[in-house]
């Protein structure tokens, strides 16, 4: 059901991990399935020098996370903001229709990371995506 590119980015994801001294961190959850993605960016002169991600989700979520980080590296923030879930899905030669919503996760995490960077620089004010996530308990809560 997945394209070769999706399988490649899923099996060998690029840019996995955290950036400890990231300039911006975005974390979003997919309300449709409960999956979570966290994106880290390193910015110099308005340009994304490095990007990494952590994703709890399906194969499509992992592959789009990987592709999104690849697409934005080296781009200016303005250029990066033009990357949408469609761009990412197309770069992967498409996603099955039921999996399109997964690619939204990557777009939103990217926006949240850029937003976080701008907020830290005092460039924007207002609400930012929360940075704390709850870890579920191992025992059934009964």
């Amino acid at each position: 059901m997945y394209t070769e590119k999706v399988m490649d980015h899923f099996m060998n994801p690029r840019n996995v991990g955290e950036i400890p001294d990231a300039d911006g961190v975005g974390e979003v959850g997919n309300p449709k399935c409960g999956d979570i993605m966290k994106m880290f960016i390193k910015v110099e002169n308005d340009r994304i020098m490095d990007a990494k991600f952590l994703t709890f989700g399906c194969a499509a979520a992992i592959a789009t996370s990987s592709m999104a980080t690849e697409l934005i590296k080296g781009k200016t923030l303005e250029e990066a903001l033009e990357v949408t879930n469609k761009t990412v899905a197309e770069a992967l030669d498409g996603l099955p229709p039921v999996k399109m919503h997964c690619s939204v996760l990557a777009e939103e995490a990217l926006r949240a990371a850029i937003n976080d960077y701008r907020r830290r620089k005092g460039l924007v004010t207002g609400d930012v995506a929360p940075n704390k996530i709850e870890v579920p308990d191992c025992k059934p809560d009964k």
Binding site: V16, I36, M37, K38, F53, L54, T55, F56, I62, I133
Partner: peptide, 10 residues
């Protein structure tokens, strides 16, 4: 797990 934000948080 090495890719999971839940695991990293834990």
């Amino acid at each position: 797990r090495m890719m999971s934000p839940l695991y990293a948080a834990r």
